[in-house]
Structures are given as structure tokens and as C-alpha cells.
Design a protein around this nucleic acid. Structure first.
Lengths: 345, 345
DNA sequence: ACCTCTATTGAAAACGATTGCGAAAAATAG
DNA sequence: CTATTTTTCGCAATCGTTTTCAATAGAGGT
């Protein structure tokens, strides 16, 4: 199909020669400048497409100080969670000529330096930060260099000018709690993330709101702060089970923690959902596959990545982005892990 | 700490001026060339470090035709599997100044073109392909441009000169099967990947070898080809259960399929491991967390990514890489999903 | 002391694109 | 038909680095 004559023009000069015009003219055609006569443009364009010329990015970058690359920076690239976001970013980039560079530095001193340096020399046109907070070295450096960036799911409040994309943690938690209440649960354990993370507080707010609306008191002994990990959840679940008046349902901070809850309950011969209802958060792919299939609040991670990327692209294009803080909806996905409490009271 | 005087030298010229030498000399110092007098080198070096100068990558790239970037290309960036490899790659890159670019094109025509073009203009110094085969467009283009690349876990036989890193599928499968045999199982179902994938065939070989050594015949009705997905595994498990003489153990092609097996068994009220033993492949993080915890053959995915990257880096450095085909060990991780068959015969 | 050789260094030419500026050509006005 | 404006397009400079290449200075040999 594409048996282009093996000698593709490598430089503007070659194209220019072939089209009988000067180098700048070809450049103008490529960059869709207006000051080219229609006839000339057409002629150059033909040569361009026929020979399959491609611009040399190094040359362009050098001249323009732009790279058409964005950095993806994740605090911990070690969770399935971040991976989903990554996929969304890739998606959004598919129809552009922008490329994503994995730029996490993982507290590696030397690497952080390198990264900062790359910022200075125009190697980076923009960045997407996953789970960053305002104090993050990355965010600060990006601001210093005035490089556009968007934070996906910030862990703490950002500055007033920092763009972010997250999900409706509050209503997600509220919906989950309401659902459990509607099933008849009156004692609902909340096994959240670290108390310092804003998402945790927001979700706690949703949980509390649902309880209040349901006319129930807030029992702080039912609230546990975790570390987002399954191992931690094991301990916290044990604590909940050991309560004098243990909960009949557990709202886990994420699906990974829910996995830890499942595991612990099994060890204690507590059946899900018969003896204990469990709700997760995230809806990672395996949530539907474990048994019993996990009822969970879906975070549209893919979508979040996509939206953040589109915002960033607009920002990079110099457009004004009006919505500084975007929150995407978090539907409750009902599966098999919840039921009415067994000991009806 | 690093209150560098805000006017960091942006160019070699500025450094040169500050050090009282010429631009090329500074360049030579930076690139550790030998033809610089010790005294001069030391003087320049001081200016360099004191002012925190950093090379401009666009300039260097343009001149050298190298980018210090490698492409990561994955057939489907949509599995947790690939993500683990990605982490390994990141790890290996941490102590270098090479950056990883997500370059999967997902059969997106336009994007593939862009990618090929970037190959031509030196935007890519090397590539790591995940799950590619010899016929892959990417691999062919890379070869055409003589760009070094390494394939992680090739899905089909590669050319004689293609470097690859994979795992010992044969002995992994053999170990898993032997383990089941040692528990007393005599009918072991094999729920593999697509029959066209070489890993599938290799594992089948290991499975068969264990059977033969155990003096058991190969019952082809126990062998099912799947698609690596959990949904497919559901169907295939049903088929196995519907056999006149169903297996007492199932060896799944990967952990995701094992999840499907679990799910189906639960639906059919078949207890794991009491009524059916299950072995997985991969050892993804959730394997230890589901209940019962999955006994599985560990693929050192992280390590594979790391090894592949190191090979690539050496290749890019012009070193001769002797081991064309690297296989990493696949230990059997025994957890809770296997037991002696219940109906002792 | 002269010649040769080596170790250092800088001047200048790339690398491939974009852009400011001015000149020629064409269009418009008078 | 001339004067003025507008289009169109090329020259030359520039982005920041690396790489010849030649020049200089010093070392060593005889």
C-alpha cells in the first residue's frame, strides 16, 4: 500500500526543492499560516503528502521551546487505581500529536533533579499529577515554570488556581450509606482512607449526612481510618468485629480495602452478604469478579483521566479553562455484597 | 536549601562566559571528553555545578539525532498484567536519564502514522514491546529503522535477532501440575489462553510433561482454550463441570481467568479448595487477597520489565547483548486454593 | 637549538525547523 | 496610468548543542 519511494524527504529543504519554493514557505504551509497563495499552498501540500514528509521534532522543539509532550506524575504508580487513570489519559491523547511521558520520580533525589531540569529546557509542555497535593514538589516546580498542569484526585486542598479533576466523593459516600440504610442497616462501619486525605473527609461527610438524614446518631467507634491498603483493612475489620455492638455493614474506602474486609470476614466465618454487607469504592475491574461480586461506588477513573487530559490540552492551547474544579459523578453499582441485616431488630 | 541565584545559565554560552572558556570546551566537560586540561575541567565543572546548569535536550537531540527516550508499546494497556511490567520499566529507568513514553497506538490509524514518523526523526532511541509478535507493525518498523528494542513476553515466535524477555512458562505449568498431582489429583483441567499464543502452547507442554511423568494419559477434553479474560473463563469452567467425569482441579491460564473460575464454582456450589482445587498464573497483587487466597505460578512481571529495560539500555549504549532470549523463573506460590481431592479414589 | 609530536583549545559549521523583515508582485484606489 | 496598499514569498538570523578542523602551546627527542 505505502510503497513510498524509499527516499522520503528528511528535511524542509528537500521538500522546498521538490516544490520549487523556499524553506520558509513550506514551513508556513505545514503550520497552516495564512500568508501563502492558494496555488502555492496546494502545490507544496501535494509534495508534502505525496512524499510523506514529517517534521523533525527536535528541530521544531529547539526553535519553539515546546515539545508536544506531557508528563504523567503519580505519587505511587503502584496501584491499579492509577493505572485506570493512565488509560484514560492515553485515550484522550490518541487523537492528538501529544505524547505522554512517565515522569514519576518516586522520591528518587537524582531523578527529581533531572525532572526539574527537563522542565526548564522546554521538554515538558504540561503535566498531569495523580494524587498530588499543594505541597507537592512537582506541583510547585510546575507553577514556578508556569507550565500548565491538572491534578487528578488531589489528596489535599489545592491552591485557588490549580485545576483538578476528581469525583463526587461526598455524594458517592452518601449514596452508599443511604443504600445500606434502606436495606435496614442501623450500624454501618466506615473503613476510610487516611484522615489527612481530603477525599476521606469528604466521604465521611457524605456518610454522616446520610446518617443524619436517616435520623441516626454518629457513632465514632464505627469509624476507622486506614491506609487504602488491604492489609491494613484486615486489622481495622477485626477491630470493628470486636466491638461490643459490631456493625452489620461496612463501607470500605476502596475496593482494595474491601478485599481485606472480605478476607477478614471469611476468617471469622462471617458471611457476606448474609451476616455482613460490604460496599467498596472505585469499582476496579476485579470488583465484579470476586465473590460475592462487590457492590461499590464507581469512580470513573478512566473518564477522570480523559477529562483531565482534555483540560490540559486546552490549557496548553492557550484557551481559558473556566471550570477550575471538575467533579465527575460516582454512581453506586449494586452487586451481590449487600443484603438486609440478619439479626432483624 | 537550593536558593540558586534565580538567573541560572540557560545556555552553554553563558557558562562558557562565566568560566572564561569557549562553548565547545564546556560541552566537552559536560560530555566527559578526555581532551580537556584537568585545570580547565575543574574550573568549568565548578561553574557548572554552582550555577546548576542543565543541558537543553532539544538542542542536543537536534544535533545528535538522539532523544534519550524510549517508547513503551503494549498491545493492550488494559490489563493489570501490563501495568506490572510498566512499573518494572520505571524502576530500571530511575537511575538513568532516559524517559519512558507511552506509545501504544491501539490500532488507531492516525496515531500509528504519527508514531512511525517519530521513529524517523530520532524521537525514539529504543522501544519495549509488551506482548508483541513478529508480525507486529511496531516491531517491523523498529527493525526497519534499526532502532533497538526488546519484547517482553512475546505472543509468538520472534525473529532470530529479536531480543525478548519472558518467563519459564513450561516449568511454571509443570510445577503447578506436579503440585496438583502430588495432592492426589488425577483429572486436572487446563483452562489456557488462546491456542495461537506461544505461551499457551509452552504451558500446555509443561502440563503434559507433568502428566506423562506422573504416568497419566492426556485427556484432551480437559483442555480448554480461552481468551485470558474472566468472562470467557466462566463459560469454559461450566464446560469442564459439565463433563461426564469432571476434573477435581483446574489450572487457569492467568489470575484473571482464575477469578472467573472461582465465580463459576461458587455459582455451582462447588467449594474451593474442598471440592475443586484451582491454580492461577501471574500472581497479580489481588491473588493473595481474594478468598480463598489463590495458589498461583508467579510471573516476575516487575522483574521482566526491569530486565528488558536494562537489556535495552545496554543495546542503546552500543554494547553487545549476548543473551537474546531471557527467561525468568516462575515459582509456584502455594496459598489456599488447593487441597487433596475430596472423592478419594 | 631545532624539529616533531601531542595535548588543549577555539572558530565555525552543522543539525532542522521557525520567524522577523523587507522586497517583489499583485491588487486596489484615485 | 500612477500611487498606494495588500499579498506573497525569500533571505537571513535564531534556537542550543555537538563536532570537525585547524591553530597554538608545550613537551620531548636528537
Amino acid at each position: 500500500m505505502e510503497e513510498s519511494t524509499s527516499e522520503r524527504p528528511r528535511t524542509l529543504a528537500e521538500v522546498a526543492a521538490a516544490a520549487g519554493v523556499s524553506v520558509p514557505t513550506v514551513s508556513r504551509v505545514i503550520n497552516q499560516r495564512s500568508d501563502v497563495a492558494p496555488a502555492t499552498r496546494e502545490r507544496v501540500q501535494r509534495v508534502l503528502t505525496e512524499h510523506g514528509y514529517v517534521v523533525n521534532h527536535a528541530g521544531r522543539s529547539l526553535r519553539q521551546g515546546k515539545s508536544r509532550q506531557i508528563d504523567i506524575i503519580s505519587q505511587d504508580l503502584d496501584s491499579y487505581y492509577a493505572f485506570q487513570i493512565l488509560r484514560g489519559i492515553q485515550d484522550a491523547l490518541l487523537s492528538t500529536d501529544v505524547r505522554a511521558v512517565l515522569a514519576s520520580t518516586h522520591d528518587h533525589r537524582q531523578r527529581e533533579m533531572q525532572w526539574i531540569q527537563r522542565l526548564a529546557d522546554g521538554s515538558t509542555d504540561g503535566a498531569i499529577l495523580i494524587l498530588a497535593d499543594r505541597a507537592s514538589l512537582h506541583l510547585q516546580e510546575l507553577r514556578r515554570h508556569a507550565i500548565p498542569c491538572v491534578v487528578v484526585d488531589p489528596v489535599a486542598e489545592l491552591g485557588p488556581n490549580d485545576l483538578s479533576v476528581s469525583s463526587t466523593n461526598w455524594s458517592g459516600a452518601k449514596a452508599a450509606t443511604e443504600y445500606l440504610l434502606s436495606l435496614g442497616h442501623r450500624r454501618i462501619g466506615a473503613l476510610l482512607g487516611p484522615s489527612t486525605v481530603s477525599a476521606t473527609q469528604t466521604r465521611l461527610g457524605g456518610y454522616r449526612a446520610a446518617l443524619t438524614e436517616g435520623g441516626l446518631p454518629l457513632d465514632t467507634s464505627l469509624i476507622r481510618y486506614g491506609d487504602w491498603q488491604a492489609e491494613g483493612a484486615v486489622l481495622e475489620t477485626r477491630e470493628l468485629l470486636a466491638l461490643a455492638d459490631p456493625p452489620t455493614a461496612i463501607f470500605a474506602g476502596n475496593d482494595l480495602q474491601a478485599l481485606g474486609v472480605y478476607r477478614t470476614l471469611r476468617q471469622h466465618n462471617v458471611l457476606v452478604p448474609d451476616d455482613m454487607s460490604v460496599v467498596g469504592f472505585d469499582d476496579l475491574p476485579y470488583a465484579a469478579l470476586i465473590t460475592p461480586a462487590l457492590t461499590t461506588v464507581r469512580q470513573p477513573l478512566l473518564e477522570m483521566g480523559r477529562v483531565a487530559t482534555n483540560m490540559l490540552l486546552r490549557l496548553m492551547g492557550g484557551e481559558q479553562v473556566d471550570s477550575v474544579r471538575v467533579e465527575l459523578a460516582t454512581p453506586l453499582i449494586v452487586r451481590e455484597s449487600c443484603a438486609a441485616p440478619s439479626g432483624v431488630r
